[in-house]
Amino acid sequence: MIRTQMTTLLKREFWEHKTLMLYLPAVGSALFLISVVGLLLLTNAASSTEIIFEESVFEFGLDKLVALDNAERTLLLGQVYQLSSYPFLLMSLVVAVNYLLGSMFNERKDRSILFWKSMPVSDALTVVSKLVTGLLVVPMVYLIFCLIAQLLSLFVLTLVLISTDYPVWDILWQPINPISHAFSLLFYQLMQSLWGAPWFGYALLLSAWAKSSPVVWFVGIPVAVVILERVYSPYDGLIIFDWLWAHSLPLLAVSGEGFNLEWMLVEVTGLLQGIVAGMIFVGSAVWLRGKHNEI
């Protein structure tokens, strides 16, 4: 029964948030594809294009790409391909936090909580379904739309290149390696959910607790804590601030190394601290879901 209930609860989250979980990422993919096609139309793919930026001249073009040696090409294309996933990863993060903040606030506001609570579903299962949606479903949906957009773009580029004499496989598919890229993106999304656990759990807790605008509390409380620490801290430096900042989002910005997440293996203590904090927040959210009804 619990498994059927869980599946139903996840479907229910999808029904409520079709815009965030289907239409928005689909529009994102479409825009991505349109930009790639637009760039190809504006530039002449077969010869170089010069872009002047702050007196430096950057030249782009297939002839330049072909002229590079294998290692350089792999590095360059890999970076460009990774960079092109950032909009999706950031969207995924914003959507997840936004979703979690509203997940138990909206049902109290529109009083539908009285309907949900009239069903034999435990508060713990309800909260877990929201956690799974925010930390797993949303990142996976955005990952899939990102990969689809990128693959379609690769196909478009392939079509353009087929009309030239350049070896498509060697200069495009092999250096980019979409499969290994997909796995590193998957790993990144999962790690983001774990690393951001305290913030995600905190969002869920606020959603079950706040009587008005959870997003204001989401920003307000940490800012207040950090200001208090700054003014009254008996120690040198800012321990709370550093910790919050280190666990803050997105992961890309924290590491400063993009997808290279090896540092995380060194930071196991930090990771575990975050997960424990997240679990405490989620536990409190379950307790509050049982206690609170309509606003």
């Binding site: 029964m1 059927t4 139903t8 529109d110 069903m119 034999p120």
Partner: peptide
């Protein structure tokens, strides 16, 4: 009256109750 969520479709309301209530 009025505690059924406004965004829910009638068919989904049935599927929901079917899925969570034995």
């Amino acid at each position: 009256v009025g505690v059924l969520p406004r965004w829910l479709k009638v068919a989904d309301a049935l599927s929901y109750v079917e899925g969570v209530h034995p």
